[in-house]
Design a protein around this nucleic acid. Sequence first.
DNA 1: ACCGGTAGACTGGTCTGACCAGTAAACCAG
DNA 2: CTGGTTTACTGGTCAGACCAGTCTACCGGT
Lengths: 247, 247
Amino acid sequence: MEFEPVAPVRAYQRVVEQIEEAVFSGRIKPGDRLPSERELMVQFDVGRSTVREALRVLQAAEMIRSRPGDPRGPEVLAASPAALHRSMHRLARADHIGLSELLQFRMVLDGSAHLLAAQLRTEDHLAELDAALESMREGVSKGFAEFSHADVAFHEAIARATGNPLLVISGEVVRGVVLELIEDKLEHADDRTALMRNWLAHHEEVLGAIRDSDGERASRLAKQALYDNYAEYVPEEQRRLLRPLLA
Amino acid sequence: MEFEPVAPVRAYQRVVEQIEEAVFSGRIKPGDRLPSERELMVQFDVGRSTVREALRVLQAAEMIRSRPGDPRGPEVLAASPAALHRSMHRLARADHIGLSELLQFRMVLDGSAHLLAAQLRTEDHLAELDAALESMREGVSKGFAEFSHADVAFHEAIARATGNPLLVISGEVVRGVVLELIEDKLEHADDRTALMRNWLAHHEEVLGAIRDSDGERASRLAKQALYDNYAEYVPEEQRRLLRPLLA
DNA sequence: ACCGGTAGACTGGTCTGACCAGTAAACCAG
DNA sequence: CTGGTTTACTGGTCAGACCAGTCTACCGGT
């Protein structure tokens, strides 16, 4: 005989559930407005603080947004990966995840993204990648910040070319966290111009492979470049975690 | 000249930030207790409703848990993928992420996990995998629920063998969401015994490859099995998103 | 006819103070 | 040592109030 722990259902929880259900079922669509808090407290027959706690939860989940003074009431938002992004970032920061794990994960994600992008890219994606690469060329002379910005845009364009939002989001998150961990080391790099030229050449090669729909080559190039550029920041004894991915 | 939209910082938001910061920086560890709401409202110099809204946000992010009557105060939780899971599930329900994207992502993650597990596994990991496989064998006669449970344990053991928590967590999340999307279809499968025997045979083959340290083979088997088992639930015109991963 | 300013009716954000049901631990009687 | 009772808390909820801000409709000047 199995029993389950009994937990009282909070009032604010049931308010959340009802609103969530209305959104998921399509009864309320993105762009629609919820009644005002004072109106909701009448409809749900609860106090305003209860309504507000429910709205806070929904707002934390990026499902609604409310602005003081707006007589139309809280706005229902379209589902967005923003909440996913935040949770993933929190996990990465909290779970004391080291550079070697992040790099390993990024090699997995980027490698697969390049593979898929090469085989699924459209002409539009290629144009976008060309534009990003051109920005990188300009960035070399403009400065490191501009170059980095263009570099990020290039990687995001590749992720988007896979058509899979999960790859876009996780890639973005992992790249961000990796950068946070080594940005101070990059600040003190000796010859950043040579560094940028190297990266630029690598990206041109990658774009060539993607244009040729050679996913295998694009993937191999991406993973190798990650290893070459970042492995130096990983302790020697942990690099064996990365090498199996280079096969 | 570029301007940014100006938005007032809510009081509850700054409370959230301070507590978050304390958790991330390690000043507060999982298992520790926060002061009571009445104590927090003194320390932050805000009203109780503000404190409560902040705690609700943190609770929605699965960072704390509070129970009425507990004189030790709200408990700080260990970072868990639960929030990630919820956000991803919400996205999937809102139709921004379909089964094809989830499956593609899972093929990427599982494929890489198998590759890495085969080359990094220790004898302990092999023993764990053997145990999980034995549970699956027993599960075939016990019932579908038991079998599924053992199946999950097997996959988690493989993820753990990579040594990378990111692979463990994302794998867990994606597997969960995929299962939720097709569980009703699995419920009505005609011959579940044959299904289970198929899966069992496949897992035995995978474990063999991992024991041989043949990462390439383990990875190929895993991705192929995913495609064979789940592609039928993906619309025909979207299967081309998956096939590039089978090369 | 147009326009700028303004009055008023709202909105959400915050605070105060109160009550309740429930917990935990100390206390106390058997 | 055990089982109840007391007590001092906890979080959950509500009511009512005030504020700063926004929107809209109205109004007077041009």
